[in-house]
Amino acid sequence: NQESVVAAVLIPINTALTVGMMTTRVVSPTGIPAEDIPRLISMQVNQVVPMGTTLMPDMVKGYAP
């Protein structure tokens, strides 16, 4: 099972992602793959992401799977 990126904290809208904001977990449905965390650093979320929420591609500005 592939791990997906999950919010480790509440991430406010338009916040640039940092390593500490993200964790990984096997979830269903799957979100952004864990191995993409290095690509996500400094990208901004386009909505509020509650802690424990799986990051989906459409939540991150400029992210393309």
Rank of each mutant, 00 (worst) to 15 (best):
D36P: 00
M51R: 15
V6W: 02
S28F: 15
E3N: 15
N1K: 13
A64L: 13
P33K: 14
L55A: 01
A16N: 13
S42N: 11
V5I: 10
P29Q: 06
A8L: 14
G52H: 09
Q44R: 14
V26F: 06
I11E: 00
Y63L: 07
T53Y: 10
V5K: 01
S28L: 08
N14V: 02
L55V: 11
E3A: 11
M21G: 02
M59Q: 06
Q47N: 08
I37E: 04
V19Q: 07
S42T: 10
A7H: 01
A34Y: 06
P57C: 04
P38D: 15
T54C: 03
P12I: 03
G31M: 04
T18Y: 06
V49Q: 01
E3I: 09
T53N: 15
V19K: 14
I41D: 03
M59E: 01
A34R: 12
Q47P: 00
E35N: 14
L10M: 10
G62C: 04
L40K: 00
N14I: 02
E35I: 14
V19L: 10
R25K: 10
V49R: 02
T24I: 07
V26P: 13
Q2W: 07
D36L: 07
G31S: 03
T24C: 03
D58E: 15
V9I: 06
V27E: 05
T54W: 02
Q47H: 07
Q47S: 09
V60I: 12
Q47I: 15
N1V: 08
P57G: 08
L10W: 11
T15P: 00
M51Q: 10
V26R: 14
P57F: 08
M21F: 05
I41G: 03
P33D: 05
E3F: 09
T54V: 11
I13H: 07
N46Q: 15
N14L: 07
A64Q: 08
G62Y: 11
A16W: 14
I32A: 02
P12F: 04
P50D: 07
M22D: 01
P33I: 08
M51A: 11
Q44A: 13
L17D: 00
L55C: 02
R39C: 03
T24H: 08
I32C: 03
T24P: 05
K61G: 11
P29H: 15
G62Q: 11
T18V: 08
A64R: 14
P50Y: 09
D58V: 12
G31R: 05
M51W: 09
R25C: 04
